[in-house]
Design a protein around this nucleic acid. Structure first.
Lengths: 402, 402
DNA sequence: ACTAATTTGTAAACCGCCATGACGAAATAG
DNA sequence: CTATTTCGTCATGGCGGTTTACAAATTAGT
């Protein structure tokens, strides 16, 4: 029961399933779940017209989904219209739950989200995770996970999967942390250190942040660029509602896009990379501040106070971001750009110069830039929701357990 | 029979088909076609094991495909192994054909490609198409199309669709040329000017060139960046075997990626765009040459002769390309970069500096850069093959005609 | 040579899944 | 109070792939 490492981003309802009648059934189960999930309580007839099947077919699909605890019958709808009122169906609040976890530089967090998207349990532990060996940190995380799972189970939920967001590069096996500079971890197999009774997925926090924006953001399109910064600057490219990961899984390295090709050398080997202008360290240095604990808070505080030096540093960073984003926007033609992570908190001072650069360098209407309203919770929520989406995308796999 | 504007880029075998039994059948027909097309002559049993269906199911699918003329039975295979030899199946060379057409700045070309990928008929007309009104040019193209179709029909083929490559931006309706600066065409609806008895698709020549590379190139991966230049510099982003088009269809505008943010002004409104360093005009100017007829040939000739000024101009252009590509590669992590179009001919003098820049700006192993071996034929072949792929992706639609 | 083993293609029976059509149930409209 | 509309379900049927069985065509072994 450890095994089936569910895909983090199945770019749509149930993909590569075998094209046999059973596969068809599985896909149709998924379509019912998606319809009910997306458009609130719905009657069987409403679902049928949404997904293009007959009422009879939907009836049997719904029966199965209710039997396996993924849907709930809420009872008769309020009449309003002519004809017999339907019986409202809703995604279950007592079925599977997605367990999301985040390993931050100086905190650990875990939460449980039900199929409806509600956070039903959470736990946080503050304190630096930097530098030490991974084992004790992951042991603490495991403890938090157990606590959250117990709490969720108390509410009638059961864990369908665990997704862990880490600040670093993750191998395509979705288990191994290849490199997490801020934690000083290298080639760490989290699969060996975490509970093995729950299907596990590990991914970069920026990716989960982008997915959170995709699934939870208001009016977020299916094609956008999500930019976030912790210590490095990363972008996640979302195309047609799925993450673009790249051949080696390294896509989105916006931080090393050349901004001024003859600029200062970057540890990556390049010259004048964006990170040299808009990276946390670079901005702190330009602002004349010492790198300390809550660096983003410090910058935001000073900028809010009106500190001219800090504001200039942020304005310059926004300019560099604008230049790098011009390239990205020209290449990808996204519907919008979303600023998340630490950038969201600094947006008031970054945005003006960023948008100005983007605007004047783009022919025609510029690509709209917005700020994530999810704040620092993004990656954690994205992780938990990725498990929920996996269930919605293939309800049959969880139905098999009993 | 004019209507069904088949998708140019259905990112895989038969997508958004309805999830009913008929849809399943259609997808399985497509899978049989793809298996036979990709792996040469195959017996029914071999196809069955490839696509995961039973021999019996494949038998009925093959029967239908033979009846509609998409597959051919070649007869018994040469034994070799133990057991009854299978009967070899091949994609038909007498069924539907894809008609590809290209409107170049100074030529028109049309060809017919059968399902096997063989070019079975072609016609070319040289002479400038620049500046004048579209009608007479399209009338000439129509004449060429009629000739090629007649020739193909003489060989037992019938036209399944017409795909036209144009040097400009095409609206998402795949019929209207929004802007083709080199032809001086604006908002031209080719659908109204071309024969209306064949399903029509119009697309940018760079897109078709990239697709040709994807389908015809040797060892081309499913994720790569195809860079081509005619007058502007365009990139096509291929992800998972499909074109990334962008929200407005403007993805791939590599020419306006900022290379030196304080560089010379570009007509697009930007500063220091790649096109200001590696665009045809810019290179000619840097090389001290006058813009004339065969500009690429001129540059290649001088460079081959050893003209130092030309070589320096090309080296500088390669450098600028390398900088812009560093950004693109960091963002997309493609498996390779392919140089096509006019760039292919100039590659010997562009590549060294291009690769040097890419190399030193990238951490770890640099993204390999290769040169298209399709030459100037790419877009034309890509157009014709796009029709062929559409048939392979959904064999049922052509089966319906009779 | 002759038999045994293996593989292919097809036909018949079967099962699963959705569509069709009919029906009772529960609401509104007149 | 009846006609109409809509919902959910049931029985029937068609369609599509699987299972099972078998004849055909080849190689392997004696």
């Amino acid at each position: 029961m450890t095994a089936p490492l569910h895909e983090v981003h199945p770019a749509g309802p149930g993909r590569a399933l075998p094209d046999t009648q059973q596969g068809m059934r599985r896909r149709n189960l998924a379509r019912v779940m998606h319809a009910v999930n997306a458009e609130g309580p719905l009657s069987r007839a409403a679902v049928a017209s949404r997904i293009g099947l007959t009422r009879a077919a939907v009836s049997t699909l719904v029966d199965e989904l209710i039997r396996t605890g993924l849907l709930e019958e809420l009872g008769p709808e309020r009449p309003g219209r002519v004809g017999r009122p339907g019986s409202a169906l809703a995604v279950s609040g007592h079925g599977p739950a997605g367990i999301g976890a985040e390993i931050g530089v100086d905190h650990l967090a875990v939460c449980a989200v039900d199929l409806r998207g509600q956070v039903r349990a959470r736990a946080v532990r503050h304190g630096a995770n930097r530098g030490g060996s991974p084992e004790p940190v992951v042991a603490e995380l495991t403890e938090l996970v157990r606590r959250v799972v117990a709490e969720a189970e108390g509410e009638g939920l059961w864990p369908a999967g665990l997704a862990v967001a880490v600040p670093g590069l993750v191998a395509r096996d979705a288990r191994t942390v290849v490199r997490a500079p801020n934690l000083d971890w290298h080639d760490t197999d989290l699969g060996a250190l975490l509970p093995d009774d729950i299907p596990l997925t590990v991914d970069n926090e920026a990716n989960f942040g982008a997915l959170a924006e995709l699934w939870l953001g208001e009016g977020t399109p299916l094609d956008f660029l999500h930019v976030s910064a912790e210590i490095g600057i990363g972008a996640a490219v979302v195309v047609a509602g799925g993450l673009l990961r790249g051949t080696r899984g390294f896509a989105g390295e916006l931080g090393h896009v050349p901004v001024r090709p003859d600029g200062p050398a970057c540890p990556c080997g390049g010259l004048g990379c964006l990170e040299q202008y808009a990276g946390e360290e670079a901005v702190l240095r330009a602002a004349g501040l010492e790198p300390g604990e809550d660096r983003v808070g410090l910058l935001a505080g000073r900028a809010a106070e009106g500190d001219a030096e800090v504001r200039r540093a942020l304005r310059d960073a926004g300019e560099a971001l604008g230049i790098a984003l011009t390239g990205a926007v020209n290449l990808l033609d996204p519907e919008s750009v979303v600023l998340g992570g630490a950038l969201a908190g600094l947006a008031p001072w970054l945005l003006p110069s960023l948008e100005a650069e983007l605007d004047r360098r783009t022919a025609g209407p510029a690509c709209p830039v917005s700020v994530s309203r999810l704040g620092p919770e993004g990656p954690l929520l994205g992780a938990a929701h990725s498990v929920v989406r996996a269930v919605l995308d293939d309800p049959a796999v969880v139905g098999e357990r009993d």
